[in-house]
């Protein structure tokens, strides 16, 4: 029963070793879906290429459904899965800053590493930028710390927040995604993709 590491089915070194292979799968999927091209990535914000929308939401939904079914079959104990904690303000403000970085730089950290791996120079520069950004954060940490720690809401699940079952929530996300995919494909027809 999973997670394997929690139940001592694998050792922590094996866990690190497997992380490498999970990374390979992650990188391979990102690159082969076209996430190594910044102009393809930002296409979602101009409507000419919505591959980000499709891959991102299909991915999130697949993982959500997978986890719930795994739990249903007793293959995984969801209480031991890491739930990202919610610190309201830092999440919102951090997300806004990341959004600005996304539209200016054309990558996010994961995709920039993929693109750097196939020789995109803009991606390599973007990675350098990320290191500088992180360094600014770690050096000025005492300044941001109050914001960083503000409004802690615990390792809160969104379905608990809305007081519905996780299955219902996933179903709602699927409906929303189906509509977004439909709009996305409509936009791709409407806005002509530049050659890149």
């Amino acid at each position: 029963m999973g997670p394997l590491i929690v139940n001592d089915i694998i050792s922590s070194n094996t866990n690190l070793f497997l992380a490498f292979f999970i990374g390979i799968a992650f990188g391979f999927v990102l690159e082969s879906s076209g996430f190594s091209s910044s102009r393809k990535l930002v296409g979602v914000f101009y409507g000419y290429d919505t591959v980000v929308l499709k891959v991102f939401f299909t991915g999130a939904i697949t993982a959500m459904i997978g986890l719930l079914f795994f739990s249903l079959f007793g293959w995984i104990d969801l209480t031991y899965i890491y739930i990202n904690p919610t610190y309201l303000w830092s999440t919102i403000i951090g997300g806004v800053i990341m959004g600005a970085g996304f539209i200016l730089g054309g990558f996010c950290p994961g995709t920039s590493v993929c693109a750097a791996a196939i020789g995109k120079i803009d991606a390599i520069i973007f990675v350098v930028g990320i290191f500088i950004g992180i360094f600014i954060f770690t050096e000025g940490y005492p300044i941001w710390k109050p914001l960083y720690m503000a409004e802690f809401m615990g390792n809160l699940k969104i379905n608990t927040f809305f007081n519905i079952s996780s299955g219902t929530l996933v179903m709602l996300v699927i409906f929303a995604a189906a509509v977004m995919f439909w709009i996305g494909e409509w936009a791709e027809k409407k806005f002509k993709a530049p050659k890149y």
Binding site: I65, L72, G74, D77, S165, G167, V170, I174, A178
Partner: peptide, 16 residues
């Protein structure tokens, strides 16, 4: 996805 979503919404949660 919609059919899987309907199934997962319909079955009771596995509260260990």
């Amino acid at each position: 996805f919609v059919s899987l979503g309907l199934i997962i919404a319909a079955v009771p949660e596995n509260t260990t």
